[in-house]
Design a protein around this nucleic acid. Structure first.
Length: 569
DNA sequence: GCCGTTTTCGGCCCGACTGTTTTCAGTCG
């Protein structure tokens, strides 16, 4: 069982225990462990084998035993029993806004409700208001919550949320009523998907700002409205929270509402050790307030370097900030060349020349065309004659555009047995290649791992494309021993792709820090199928930053000469 | 369930808002 599954089960146990009425802190221990395992750099199996699991902070005797059982046997008796005693529908119910473990337990114990369907029926029959602590409004809110749950999944792609947030922020700025304003939460931390939008503003007239916000044309309904906090649902189905504070409080509030919760908790812990209290209103030593004019000042108080929002996941950033060991994160401006772009030769919408002109205008200095290989019938993969034609066209364009370089690439399908679909002779005609899995996603882990390892052992493979095959919010990554693949890429000098398509963002940022430690290099690719797709590269940069990567880790930050030298051309 | 330079028990971050109450529990971030 891989760590992703272990992490999910630990989180599930936390939820089940809460519904069961156990101490919240017991659940918290499981939630914390779930995150720790998810963000683990090291190989989980190896840790267990070497009996080192217990050394990890937050994992004691009980969790060591349970995680070991999970990983070695693929099952956990404790979890199975817990699931038997608590219907899984109850965990689903926690997704309903305003409906937490206590209320879920109440409808279960007092009305015998075990599924969202039954809950909806009970609301419609007016049976919830009879319970202690429930009333008319609660019942109505639950009913609305169920309808929203069905209507929209409760996660949204980053660009979708970012666009809406920018529109609201623009309105607030234009009003002249806010002094400072910024998105917070997972959106500011640039998570690949977000549950809602958090916005923070400072103002001398909170009431006016709240009115602007709740009356915004994008708003469909107002969930709550107060002096410092309001919440709305947009017509697009996403929740937005706005907090308004005084400008003095803004830096503390910005840090607080950027999170993550885990980062904040860890920083509070450090603060407490230094005799400092930290909350959204300030830093306090006894009765004295420690003045900070921006977030940088806050970290300075604790003797830390400034931590970029992307890194605030309690994944070692606080320790690194204390020791001057934070990475100098790669920036969008560092990107020199664009690789992984499809043209009209296969399933792209634009000609090579259109793609070249677009890229030049954006300030890039080289472009690697990578149409699909011949096995990708569905995408019009290139047969040998097409390749010849395409290479002749690229040669001509390279003569025409002297300050720009077009590279001859290909996105090779990795066949189910790990072989590639051209002869070595054809493969040697490309400047570089990307090998990707596009079919047979359901192979078991061993076969999939073997398949990919075989493909990247081919000396003509430069880059491993979207290494886990995930599609955010729709397809789970395929089963593969990614640690073995990472190690193989490091030793064979195969570059790992960070696919920047906002529906992929593959590899996952959680894997990057560890892969870098193993010695891997990365390339941020838009996987563009039309001109505007090239702009997706910024989402890949976000992912790289969340994964602690620096400019030097990313090969397409290099000049064309250095890039070609690096890949041995 | 975890943890410990106040250490093997008693904490574990903390405040706003809502809806139900008539002083507070539950939820959320």
């Amino acid at each position: 069982m891989d760590k992703h599954e272990v992490s999910n089960i630990l989180n599930d146990i936390g939820l089940l225990l809460e519904i069961q009425g156990e101490s919240f802190f017991k659940s918290k221990a499981y939630y914390d462990a779930s995150r720790t395992i998810e963000l683990l750099d090291e190989d989980l199996e190896a840790l267990i084998l070497n009996d080192r699991l217990k050394e990890i902070k937050g994992i004691g005797n009980a969790l060591t035993q349970k995680i070991t059982e999970l990983v070695t046997t693929g099952k956990l008796e404790y979890y199975e029993n817990l699931k038997k005693s608590i219907p899984h529908g109850l965990v689903e119910m926690l997704k309903i806004p305003g409906f937490g473990p206590k209320k879920v337990a109440a409808v279960y114990k007092q009305l015998g409700i075990t599924t969202i369907g039954e809950l909806k029926y009970a609301c419609e029959e007016n049976r919830l208001i009879k319970l202690a602590g429930f009333g008319e409004k609660t019942q109505k809110k639950i009913l609305e919550g169920i309808e929203n749950l069905n209507k929209y999944s409760n996660q949204f792609y980053y660009p979708f949320a970012k666009t809406l947030a920018d529109m609201i922020i623009a309105t607030l700025k234009e009003s002249g009523q806010v002094i400072r304003v910024c998105e917070g939460g997972s959106l500011r931390r640039k998570k690949e998907t977000v549950k809602d939008i958090d916005i923070l503003a400072s103002s001398n007239n909170a009431e006016a700002v709240m009115a602007l916000f709740t009356n915004h044309p994008l708003v469909s309904s107002v969930t709550s409205k107060g002096e410092t906090k309001s919440a709305v649902i947009l017509k697009d189905g996403i929740n937005v929270d706005l907090r308004v504070v005084s400008d003095d409080e803004y830096p503390y509030a910005l840090h607080h509402f950027t999170g993550s919760k885990e980062h904040n908790t860890a920083l509070r812990h450090i603060a407490k050790q230094q005799g400092i209290k930290i909350n959204e209103y300030g830093l306090f030593k006894g009765n004295e307030t420690i003045k900070c004019s921006d977030e940088k000042d806050i970290f300075k108080v604790f003797g830390m370097d400034y931590i970029e929002p992307e890194l605030r996941e309690n994944n070692g950033e606080l320790e690194a900030a204390s020791n001057n060991q934070l990475p100098c994160l790669v920036d969008h401006n560092d990107i020199e060349g664009i690789l992984h772009v499809h043209s009209t030769y296969s399933d792209g919408a634009n000609t090579i020349e259109e793609l070249v002109k677009f890229s030049m205008n954006k300030g890039y200095t080289y472009l690697g065309i990578t149409d699909h290989s011949k096995s990708a019938y569905y995408a019009g993969g290139l047969v040998e004659d097409d390749i010849k034609r395409q290479h002749e066209e690229i040669d001509k364009l390279n003569e025409k555009y002297t300050n720009f370089t077009i590279l001859k690439g290909i996105e090779l399908d990795i066949l189910p047995d790990g072989s590639l679909d051209y002869t070595d002779n054809v493969l040697s005609s490309f400047d570089f290649t990307i090998a990707s899995v596009h079919s047979s996603f359901t192979l078991d882990e061993d076969k999939m791992t073997e398949r990919v390892l075989k493909a990247i052992s081919n000396k003509y493979v430069t880059i491993l494309g979207h290494p886990t095959g995930r599609l955010l919010l729709s397809r789970e990554p395929f089963k593969i021993n990614i640690n073995e693949v990472i190690k193989a890429c490091a030793s064979r000098k195969v570059i790992l792709e960070i696919n920047a398509n906002p529906h992929r963002l593959d590899m996952d940022w959680r894997l990057l820090k560890g892969a870098r430690y193993e010695g891997c290099k990365f390339v941020i690719c838009p996987d563009a199928h039309r001109l505007e797709g090239i702009d997706d590269i910024k989402y890949g940069v976000n992912t790289a930053r969340k994964g602690w990567l620096e400019k030097d880790d990313i090969v397409n930050t290099r000049s064309i000469e250095d890039f070609l030298k690096l890949i041995g051309r």
